[in-house]
């Protein structure tokens, strides 16, 4: 009997491969910290940056105990923030229950021009401070950037640059209540809801909210333009000189996170308004469902908006709506 060694070659190769796959990786080594003041930063807020809302950052700074303690933290924005801008004077850590627990590290921050500063009053060599930049009107449509600076007691200074971030041109109005009894007029130009019982400029009325039921068809919650066919205005008496004829495009499953403030990960931003086509679109929207929405173009073409229906209540004949609006002209 002769042994053909060549026939064992695939077997041996397989064994070699198996051993290679199971070879142990190198041991992990704990990184050696740098002997200096260090910092890092992340942007916590998501989605478009809107005028009046906050852009939020978490700024972390630390230095070895042997090199002193933290003295101050400062953020300088390229455009001065609105009055609500501040840098936290509390450092947060997350406990075992997942709750962020604050630890006070200094006095409340002070705004001086474009800079916001927090001075440390406790002896600490590590902190993470949150910075809330309230977007001012001057930043609309512009880019804004931030320089974060930390100082230590031994005179060391570190900086971290963030941005630039584009501030959207659009506006946002949240949780406007409309009801069939009185608050029926929606003005896109003013981003407001007006009552029927109070004097209102009829040229401001872009949409009329109503709730109707009929035995043979589904009408329920509806938004109708003052100039829509009488059939869809039903028995509603439109004020004299209210003649705006907006265009509406129904949307479904478009739950903007900033309007819905729920788990949805969709954000409507400036380019979305420009991409809408309102040709051959109606001037009414019947049988509105909760969490649906509607793109709107005003009669003069000056504004485009997205109306999100947060709450639709059949029993009380009312809705809660939130609006994002983009100025076209």
């Amino acid at each position: 009997m002769t042994i053909n060694f060549k026939s064992y070659i695939p077997f041996i190769a397989g064994i070699v491969l198996l051993f290679t796959a199971c070879s142990k990786s190198d041991d992990y080594a704990v990184p050696t910290p740098k002997d200096q003041l260090q910092n890092d930063c992340i942007k916590r807020s998501l989605g478009p940056n809107l005028v009046g809302s906050n852009i939020e950052f978490a700024y972390a700074m630390a230095l070895p105990k042997t090199r002193g303690k933290l003295v101050s933290a400062q953020v300088e924005a390229s455009i001065q923030g609105a009055a609500g801008t501040y840098l936290e004077n509390r450092s947060f850590y997350t406990n075992n229950s997942g709750v962020d627990v604050p630890v006070k590290i200094g006095d409340p921050s002070v705004n001086n021009g474009n800079a916001t500063t927090t001075n440390f009053t406790v002896d600490t060599n590590a902190a993470t401070l949150r910075y809330f930049y309230q977007v001012p009107e001057e930043a609309r449509g512009k880019k804004v950037s931030f320089t974060f600076t930390a100082k230590s007691s031994n005179g060391e200074t570190v900086t971290y640059k963030m941005g630039p971030y584009t501030v959207s041109k659009m506006d946002m109005a949240l949780d406007l209540g409309v009801n069939d009894a009185d608050s029926s007029y929606i003005s896109i130009a003013d981003m407001k809801v007006y009552r029927r019982s109070q004097p209102v400029d009829p040229t401001k009325i872009d949409l009329i909210y109503m709730y109707r039921t009929f035995p043979t068809v589904t009408f329920k919650h509806a938004l109708v333009a003052p100039a829509a066919p009488k059939e869809y205005l039903t028995d509603f008496v439109v004020p004299n000189n209210a003649t705006n004829d907006v265009r509406l495009v129904k949307a479904f499953n478009l739950r903007d996170q900033q309007l819905a403030r729920q788990q949805y990960g969709i954000f409507i931003d400036d380019p979305d308004f420009l991409a809408q086509n309102f040709t051959n679109m109606p001037d009414y929207f019947l049988n509105i469902k909760q969490e649906a929405g509607a793109w709107v173009e005003t009669a003069d073409g000056k504004y485009r908006a997205y109306i999100y229906f947060n709450v639709v209540d059949d029993a009380k004949k009312r809705m809660t709506i939130s609006i994002k609006r983009y100025t076209m002209k």
């Binding site: 043979t216 068809v217 589904t218 009408f219 051959n280 679109m281 109606p282 009414y284 019947l286």
Partner: peptide, 9 residues
């Protein structure tokens, strides 16, 4: 089709 359907689009 449902009442109020705009058939242009």
């Amino acid at each position: 089709v449902l009442y109020g359907t705009d058939l242009r689009s």
